[in-house]
């Protein structure tokens, strides 16, 4: 047993360090704060720059018209906005379900060798340069069908999307404590019911973050689109012909030597940022307002479950 005197010595020892610890505490806090500022500065300056340069280009005509003749500064980016919305929507329709299902498999049925390999390749896939995926889509769809198409673009972008969604879904599902699954099992529920109605419903905010992350990522992808949807000056005509998209338009405008084209490029960049921001805020607001309601689980397996 430690003597009382020794205990007093211990206490004195702890007190000695108090000053030093407080200083370290403050220093760490300052460093953390500084790092945040350093990280925010480039992001913020990009946003400010885009707003400063692009705001002047925004007008009703700019948002709705087809591009005018090169260098004239006339026309707009209507087809590009439309194309971006179409390609994001279509890629999500392909990529999100596959990604979510893969994530469910990896988390809920992933205690085996097959899942181990899938997880590994999924991680590798996530780091693939997007142009490689564009070339893949080009070889597989464009060359075989003989023409550029919206399908090829959606295919390429969904390839970028689903590894991200799969990974984030898996991680969010794994965060759900085992004890909820056990409770469901003890109630005599089937595994898929437990997964969809209990586990996913508890993990949905993480899953939504992952999906939004992947949407933002593909929204700005340019390289795979060059290989697949090519770009166009007209509004959407058919799935089997080239289409425009904002990143493509920004890229083309930025290459032109005219001030008016540069201005339109900045304007298009601003519009793209606003679209991504809008999707993020809109989805978050929608789910926040439905809090406590298993809307996500219900969306996934609509109809199969008893209505509230």
């Amino acid at each position: 047993m430690t003597t009382n005197q020794r205990r007093q010595e211990y206490r004195a020892l702890f007190k000695q360090n108090v000053e030093k610890r407080l200083v370290v505490d403050k220093a760490v806090r300052a460093v953390v704060f500084a790092c945040v500022i350093i990280a925010i500065i480039p992001l913020g300056s990009i946003l400010v720059e885009v707003f400063k340069n692009g705001a002047a280009a925004i007008s009703y005509e700019f948002l709705t018209a087809t591009p005018g003749s090169i260098g004239s500064g006339e026309g707009g980016i209507g087809p590009a906005i439309q194309g971006t919305l179409i390609i994001i929507g279509l890629s999500s329709l392909i990529g999100v379900p596959i990604g979510v299902m893969s994530g469910i498999f990896l988390s809920e049925y992933g205690d085996n060798r097959l899942a181990h390999y899938i997880r590994f390749f999924n991680d590798v896939f996530m780091e693939f340069p997007s142009i490689v995926l564009g070339i893949f889509a080009f070889l597989l769809i464009v060359l075989i069908l003989g023409h550029f198409s919206v399908w090829a673009g959606a295919f390429a972008l969904s390839l970028i999307m689903f590894p991200i969604v799969a990974r984030t879904t898996e991680e969010s599902l794994k965060m759900v404590p085992m004890t909820y699954r056990e409770a469901g099992t003890a109630l005599g529920l089937k595994k898929w019911v437990i997964t969809i109605r209990i586990v996913i419903s508890a993990a949905k905010s993480g899953m939504i973050t992952g999906i939004l992350l992947s949407v933002s990522r593909i929204g700005g992808e340019t390289a795979p689109l060059i290989m697949t949807i090519l770009g166009s000056s007209t509004f959407f005509r058919s799935m089997d012909v080239p289409m425009d998209a904002l990143p493509l338009r920004i890229w083309r405008l930025s290459l032109l030597p005219y001030d008016s084209a540069q201005l339109q490029g900045w304007g298009a960049a601003l519009v793209l940022i606003m679209i991504i921001l809008g999707i993020n805020l809109g989805v978050r607001y929608y789910f926040a307002s439905k809090k406590g309601n298993n809307i996500f689980g219900r969306l996934i397996k609509q109809g199969a479950i008893i209505k509230k």
């Binding site: 404590p177 004890t179 909820y180 056990e182 409770a183 469901g184 003890a186 209990i198 419903s201 508890a202 406590g292 298993n294």
Partner: peptide, 11 residues
């Protein structure tokens, strides 16, 4: 079955 820690479904 009732478990050691209360585990009502949170959502």
């Amino acid at each position: 079955m009732v478990f050691q820690k209360p585990n009502p479904f949170p959502t």
